[in-house]
Amino acid sequence: MSDHSKMREQMKSGAGFVAALDQSGGSTPKALSLYGVEPTDYEGDEAMFKAMHDMRARIILADDFTNAKIIGAILFERTMHDEINGTPVAELLWNSRGIVPFLKIDKGLEEQANGVQMLKPMPGLNEVLATAKGKGVFGTKERSVINEANAEGVAAIVAQQFEVAQTVLAAGLVPILEPEVNIHSETKAEAETLLEAEIAKHLDALDDGVDVMLKLTLPDQPGLYDGLAQHPRVLRVVALSGGYSTDVASAKLSENKHMIASFSRALSEGLNVKMTDAEFGAALGSNIDKIYQASI
């Protein structure tokens, strides 16, 4: 069986969750600060990204970061080009940890219009996808945001997600479509109902044999996305925590039997640069177990 087939099987039916290690430029200082590395501790972007890479490497090399509980991991583009102990990160994830590598490909969000924030243009996307494929990456992730239950906006954001998905599929990769619904939206439940219907419509139009994944905000109505999860074109539906605490996100996730977690903040909650390796491993292991239990 090819690596791609093994990865596909793991993403379709493996028990566990998808680790989100893809904080990018804008969210990096906050993620580092939570880890105990303050802006005064580094000078310039290079040093900041080095600190972030060191944190990610420490997570990936931890004893509990394996496919026993984690089936996939989403990487930032810069991380894809990096190495850990001399091994390219995607290769290390799959060959040493048994974890399927994904790549975040979006370049941020447009200003809000019709209650949503669309994806910014992604120049050079085909080259990025070809590089990812060559490095053994299985799929991609692209995030846009819905702030209001605006039918026109939701339709536009879903159409754009599926348009990008076609480019990803043509490159031989599996896209994770991520139209996030803002957890603070006053019309969150209505937006989610609109979103579910739009996604279903686009899934029905996909060719036979095509695989996509969905990354969705935990819905106000438990089980809302069960039908999408069981759609023949969908490998898996993963949930983003969206700012919910680990405990709240895990509780909500356990109400949605056909979703598994893809949390970032929750994964690194409580980790600190000053911890000994034993302390770090214990704290990370506890987070991994909590998210895993909610995912199964």
Rank of each mutant, 00 (worst) to 15 (best):
F138M: 09
F138N: 10
G139F: 08
P123V: 07
E127H: 06
A130V: 06
G134W: 00
G115L: 03
K135Q: 15
G139Y: 06
G139A: 07
E142N: 15
K133A: 14
R143M: 11
N114S: 12
M118T: 06
A132T: 07
T131P: 04
G134K: 02
R143H: 08
L119S: 04
P121I: 12
G136P: 01
G115D: 06
T140S: 13
E127G: 14
A132F: 06
R143Y: 10
Q117H: 03
K120P: 03
E142Q: 14
A130K: 15
L125Q: 03
M122F: 03
K141F: 02
Q117N: 13
K135S: 11
K120M: 10
T131W: 00
E142T: 06
P123L: 04
T140K: 00
A130S: 15
T131D: 14
P121Q: 11
S144T: 13
N126C: 11
G136A: 07
N126L: 07
V137C: 09
L125S: 02
S144R: 11
P123Y: 04
G136Q: 07
P123G: 09
G136E: 11
K120T: 11
F138P: 11
F138T: 12
L129T: 05
G115E: 06
G134D: 14
V137D: 08
K133E: 14
T140A: 08
P123M: 08
R143D: 01
N114R: 12
E142R: 12
M118Y: 11
V116H: 03
S144W: 01
N114F: 10
K133R: 15
T140M: 06
K133Q: 15
A132I: 05
N126I: 02
M118D: 03
G134S: 10
G136L: 09
S144P: 05
V128Q: 14
T140Y: 00
L119W: 03
G139R: 05
G124C: 05
N114G: 00
T131L: 14
P121Y: 01
V116W: 02
G115I: 10
K120A: 12
R143V: 12
L119M: 09
V137F: 03
T140G: 03
M118W: 01
M122D: 04
